[in-house]
């Protein structure tokens, strides 16, 4: 069984990413379970998606310490969700910090650097994704989820390839947004591959 946990801030597209992972796995003949954050927390709060691939999953939520891969859309959310990662798990983390509104108000200068340092010192395999650069290249601000998915698939931990994800995307993303998403996928995959 492969457990994959996704963490981000409401509005970043974690739900679509977890759906794509589950659907890609199912197209490879596996069973899949997911659990999402829906409701008030979607308005800018911390959101977590649990994806469980394969037989033997009873709980919709991944037990702590048993996720093979953590896909974080933001450094602090990676740290927040780290207790779910298995001792030999892999982290795929978007570098850019998302500042909460409260940070600007309270004058706290959270910028993610301290979180990235903590993740680097953790010792487990860390794949950092420069999401900003990828989004600039794609010319879209909305494709971070697919870019991270590319990096995660390229890491080899998900049990399926980047080409498998591409197939799932082609089947589900409207034509209008397809090129942007495929470009984000391959740029993300390149980032994931380099960190192998």
């Amino acid at each position: 069984m492969i457990n994959c946990i996704l963490a981000g801030v409401g509005g970043q597209g974690t739900v679509l990413a977890s759906k794509l992972i589950a659907q890609t796995a199912m197209e490879q003949g596996h069973t899949a379970h997911t659990a999402e954050t829906i409701g008030m927390a979607q308005r800018g709060g911390s959101v977590v998606s649990h994806v469980r691939i394969g037989q033997g999953a009873y709980s919709p939520l991944i037990p702590k310490g048993s996720a093979q891969i953590l896909i974080a859309f933001e450094p602090a959310e990676a740290v927040r969700t780290l207790p779910y990662l298995a001792p030999d798990g892999v982290m795929v983390v978007a570098q850019k910090a998302v500042k909460p509104v409260t940070a600007a108000l309270s004058g706290s200068n959270y910028d993610g650097a301290e979180m990235l340092r903590f993740l680097r010192e953790d010792g487990r395999r860390l794949i950092l994704v420069d999401g900003e650069a990828i989004l600039r290249q794609c010319g879209s601000s909305k494709a971070l989820n697919v870019a991270l998915l590319g990096a995660a698939a390229a890491s080899g931990v998900l049990g399926f390839s980047v080409a498998d994800v591409e197939k799932a995307i082609r089947a589900r993303i409207p034509q209008k947004y397809l090129d942007i998403n495929l470009q984000a996928l391959s740029l993300g995959a390149a980032a994931g591959g380099q960190n192998k």
Binding site: V9, G10, G11, M40, A41, Q42, R43, G44, G45, S46, A76, V79, R80, L82, P83, K99, P100, V101, T102, A103, S108, Y110, E114, M115, F118, E121, D122
Partner: peptide
């Protein structure tokens, strides 16, 4: 687990 740095709080807000 190593002690994590203080995490930013993210209460839900109006969009």
């Amino acid at each position: 687990a190593k002690e994590a740095p203080a995490l930013p709080v993210r209460p839900p807000v109006l969009c």
